[in-house]
Design a protein around this nucleic acid. Structure first.
Lengths: 146, 146
DNA sequence: TCATGACTCATACGAAAGTACCAATTTCAT
DNA sequence: ATGAAATTGGTACTTTCGTATGAGTCATGA
């Protein structure tokens, strides 16, 4: 739906422009004007293609050069962040895909406490959601296993 | 197809009528000429981007395995899991820590659709939550960056 | 002793996520 | 052209998450 809307909107705008141009050419009798417009159109057509291609290339390089082989926990990072022992435990369980309730069971404490720890974690990791917390933790290499 | 074509055909006809009407209006001035040229440039810029995007999309489905460069993404896994192109896109955004609403904005579709895709992803990945989906996707090495 | 930080727990509320239906439209290969 | 698969979108509902706020317990070092 969105695609067709976009296509037709583009077509309509193009038509409008063409109408305007034809009006000018009729009024001014400038025959080379259409050629200029066509040239501009073609040029920017390729500019558009080029820009998009650049973007694609950038995505490819950024996704291929981030290989980490070592799987060691960076304890320095944990200290720098100021994560307490309990908070770190919660973070690990969280990154394993557990719900707050499950983590509570695993650590034998209440879900409320987990929520407190998780909220504090978000502040220290500077994130807003648990999915972002996982991302951040992976980046900082403070998670065991992977 | 029927509806959108009808709507936009109507719009185009309306534009034609407007154009006919504008024929009688006398508008002179070189300032709007430059504006028109700029408009053409911008339009075809986006048309170029769009065309290139279409081509990329088609290449992705057919020649995804012909890429011999170092790839962190296991496309075989994706096929084995039966993930569609759109579902995979959603999965990537999801793994980046975006909310459903954010993903909807990024892909220009509604949050409902995202929920549908995400639910289908859970079935195919055999998980129950998005945090688990991230875990599973990392294990299967189907995420870029990783 | 006492201040402090870590840990614990609770309530209440809003936001986000997830499920279970349904249905229209689009794409694509045969 | 046609049918299957994919994509999109909706409603209604439940669950989980996240925030804000307050407070009690406990160990420890100054």
């Amino acid at each position: 739906m969105k695609k067709t809307v976009f296509i037709f909107t583009t077509l309509i705008i193009a038509l409008l422009v063409l109408f305007q141009l034809s009006k000018f050419s009729v009024m001014q009798g400038n025959s080379s004007l259409e050629f200029s417009i066509a040239a501009v159109a073609v040029i920017f057509l390729f500019v558009g293609i080029y820009i998009n291609k650049q973007r694609e290339a950038k995505n490819n390089t950024s996704t291929s050069n981030t290989n980490t082989e070592k799987q060691t926990v960076d304890y320095t990072q944990i200290e720098t962040l100021g994560l307490s022992k309990r908070e770190y435990e919660v973070l690990c369980k969280l990154a394993q895909g557990h719900t707050n309730k499950e983590i509570a069971s695993l650590l034998f404490i209440s879900e409320s406490t987990i929520k407190t720890h998780v909220s504090n974690l978000y502040v220290k990791l500077d994130v807003k959601r648990r999915t972002q917390a996982i991302q951040k933790a992976k980046e900082l290499q403070i998670l065991p296993i992977s």
